[in-house]
Design a protein around this nucleic acid. Structure first.
Length: 423
DNA sequence: TCTGGGGTCCTAGGACCC
DNA sequence: TCTGGGGTCCTAGGACCC
């Protein structure tokens, strides 16, 4: 049977989430800022019309924002995650298999649906349901491969006449669309590859589809070969319905201001360690390799640049925050250099194990943290309840280095998490 | 003054082994 | 004087995605 994929993508997702609870901003241009209010990471359609670009640093567009009365929001991931879950739940009711690809995108398996109903009609129904139940508008692209479904979705957004749903099952329609799309807009073709392709006279998605897959594999990569096959309707990428377990956990942030004090940086590292450990326990894994990095800004001229990463392998895997804090603190002391203005730091965990499958180190005294599991469970429970927050002393009590979030919206849908603490 | 965060996959090259 | 070939594993870095 011919496979059928649908790609459902929420429009201007973060900006739409913010607008949902602010009907007064219905026609106002809105942007959402990255952590630290550093860059523009989402724009409402009104903001796009004004020519605001994705990813631009805030300080470069300050004037435009004031001039056009654009409303800014600091990113509020608790809110976006909650609305994302609502959308995904609806999609899961409509199809037997769904792959949640990112916070605002999902692939659906529609194989066989076309025996029962028209694919376009089905797509319109799903779109209407999401719209009615959540207030989020989506675009839907339907095609025999994931890469073509992405392209169909691209068209659904670009051409209003489509009603935001495009059925691209017909090879003739595929060809026509491919000829209209720039090669850089193909899923999997980034900036670098696009430049190389154009230098070889490949400008449109159709040019790429017509290229010799084998030859392109040796010249570029197996990834591009797969993309070419997918553009020709040969499905190479399956749905991944069960999220694969993470291979790596990263917790890093840029600072609200440059950090020069050792103690401040140490507290930041402790904070990221704690957060990374929480994520690790959320994955129900133990980790054995721990890395810490610190760096200064590469953008500042006339200032020495310093960037250092150091990894350590533990004798036994752990998920205990105390073990991890111990290690990251040791690493930090080894990579710390005085006299720099640090911009960013982070903690990475890797080499994961399931509980109970690791061969303990024969020559090491058994970990004496006998209450580890229970203690960590209590800490996580309290912190996730939204009713309080307990933390390790090494994080410090009044961090100077924390993020700038000057335009944060309230937690409309989740209880206490992000509300101002009034008690 | 101010430039996100978190992830995956692939490849090339070195070390090492037989 | 002669100095192979094939394989694995690991790591760093590139490229891409949202």
């Amino acid at each position: 049977m011919q496979t059928v994929f649908a790609l459902v993508d929420c429009n201007n997702f973060y900006a739409s989430c913010e607008k949902l609870f602010r009907p007064d901003l219905k026609h106002t241009p809105v942007v959402v800022l990255s952590n630290n209010d550093g860059c523009v990471v989402a724009r409402s359609k009104e903001a796009k019309v004004l020519g605001l670009k994705m990813g631009v640093p805030m300080f470069q567009v300050k004037d435009e924002i004031r001039q056009h009365g654009i409303v800014c929001f600091s990113s509020n991931y608790v809110l976006y995650a909650d609305l994302s879950n609502r959308v995904m739940t609806i999609l899961e009711e409509e199809a037997p298999r769904v792959e949640v690809y990112s916070i605002d995108e999902a692939f659906m398996d529609l194989t066989g649906v076309d025996h029962v109903t028209d694919l376009l009609a089905f797509g319109k129904k799903v779109k209407a349901k999401v719209d009615q139940w959540t207030g989020i508008t989506v675009g839907i692209g339907i095609a025999p491969t994931k890469t073509l479904a992405k392209l169909a979705n691209h068209a659904a957004k670009k051409y209003p006449a489509t009603g935001s749903v495009v059925d691209l099952m017909e090879p003739d329609r595929q060809k026509r669309l491919l000829s209209l799309v720039e090669v850089g807009d193909v899923w999997g073709v980034g900036r670098r590859t696009m430049a190389k392709l154009k230098a070889r006279g490949i400008h449109t998605a159709l040019d790429l589809a017509n290229a010799d897959a084998k030859a392109m594999r040796s010249e570029f990569s197996v990834v591009l070969e797969r993309t070419i096959r997918e553009l020709n309707g040969v499905s190479c990428l399956d749905l991944e319905c069960v999220r694969p377990t993470k291979q790596q956990i990263i917790c890093s942030r840029s600072f609200g201001h440059k950090v020069t004090e050792k103690q401040e940086l140490r507290e930041a590292i402790a904070k990221y360690t704690t957060r990374a450990a929480e994520k690790l326990r959320g994955e129900k894994r133990l980790c054995r390799v721990v890395s810490v990095f610190i760096r200064t800004s590469p953008h500042v001229k006339n200032e020495p640049f310093y960037s250092k990463t150091l990894s350590v392998e533990l004798p036994n895997p752990t998920d205990d925050t105390r073990d991890l804090l111990e290690v990251t603190n040791v690493i930090f002391r080894r990579i710390w250099r005085a006299g720099y203005r640090y911009m960013k730091a982070g903690v990475m965990l890797a080499d994961f194990y399931e509980h109970g499958v690791f061969q303990q180190d024969l020559f090491r005294v058994e970990n004496n943290k006998v209450n580890s599991k229970a203690l960590m469970a209590v800490v996580d429970h309290i912190n996730q309840s939204g009713l309080g927050n307990i933390f390790f002393a090494s994080q410090g009590v009044s961090p100077q280095w924390s993020m700038k979030r000057e335009h944060l919206s309230p937690a409309y849908t989740t209880k206490w998490g992000e509300l101002p603490k009034v008690f």
